Simulated assay, not measured.
Amino acid sequence: MTNALMSVQIIPKTKNGEDVIPYVDEAIKVIHDSGVKYEVHPLETTMEGEMNQLLQIVADMNERMVEMGSPNVISQIKLLYQPSEISMSDLTKKYRDEEKN
């Protein structure tokens, strides 16, 4: 059962002011490899899953940034926890239906 939605924006510091996009791409790969449902948006990525699983994914993303050479990482997250179950489509269905009209 999915009990959480989490949006994450990861901001890795780069060693010599390099472009952060390769780091962000790698962070999204960590999400992809985790197997959770996710959607990439321009300023953040939203994931759907169990709360502890999503928190672990953010920890894994941060570790990967450090492995790539980032001396520190800021991770901004928004978390919706709903024990009775929640999905991205639950919150966006009416907007997707409007797009079809």
Rank of each mutant, 00 (worst) to 15 (best):
E50F: 07
V66N: 07
S87Y: 08
M1Y: 04
L5V: 13
E48G: 03
E99K: 03
V73W: 08
D19R: 02
K78M: 13
Y95T: 11
M68G: 10
V40M: 12
P22K: 03
V24P: 05
S34M: 04
N62G: 05
T14C: 05
V58M: 02
Q53E: 13
L91N: 06
S87D: 11
G35D: 08
V20H: 03
Y23A: 00
K13Y: 08
Y95C: 08
P42K: 01
H32K: 04
V20C: 10
E26P: 00
V58C: 01
I28V: 10
L91W: 03
E44Q: 14
H32G: 03
E39D: 14
I74R: 03
R96P: 14
H41E: 13
Q56G: 15
V40N: 12
Q53L: 11
V58G: 02
K100V: 14
I10F: 14
I31G: 05
T2V: 15
Q56P: 14
N101G: 04
G35P: 03
E48W: 02
E98R: 11
S70P: 09
S7I: 04
I86H: 02
E44F: 15
P42V: 06
K93C: 09
S89I: 11
T46S: 10
V66C: 08
V36I: 08
I31Q: 04
S7G: 07
E99D: 06
G35W: 06
E98C: 14
E99T: 01
V30H: 05
D25T: 00
E98S: 11
V58R: 00
M1R: 06
M51F: 06
P22C: 07
M1E: 09
E26W: 00
I74C: 04
L54E: 08
I28N: 09
E48M: 06
P83F: 04
M51W: 05
V8Q: 02
D60C: 12
Q56A: 15
I57E: 11
I77L: 00
I77Y: 00
V73D: 09
S70M: 09
V8N: 01
V66L: 10
S70G: 08
K15Q: 02
H32C: 03
N101H: 01
V73C: 13
M6K: 01
P12E: 12
I77G: 00
L54R: 04
Y38A: 05
Y23M: 03
Q56S: 15
I31K: 04
Y81E: 12
G69D: 05
D97G: 12
G17A: 06
D97R: 12
K15W: 03
V30T: 12
I11G: 14
T46H: 02
S70T: 04
K100Y: 09
E99L: 07
E63P: 01
K13G: 11
I11M: 15
T92C: 12
M1G: 13
P12M: 10
A59V: 15
Y23C: 02
T2E: 15
E63M: 05
G69A: 06
K93I: 13
N3W: 00
T92F: 11
K13L: 09
S34I: 02
R64Y: 02
K100L: 14
D33G: 00
I74N: 08
Q82E: 12
L80P: 00
T46D: 05
H32R: 03
V36F: 07
N62A: 05
I31M: 06
S7W: 04
N72Q: 08
V73K: 07
R64N: 09
K15S: 04
L91R: 07
Y23P: 02
I10Y: 11
S87A: 15
N3Y: 01
M88A: 14
L5C: 12
E98M: 14
Y23W: 01
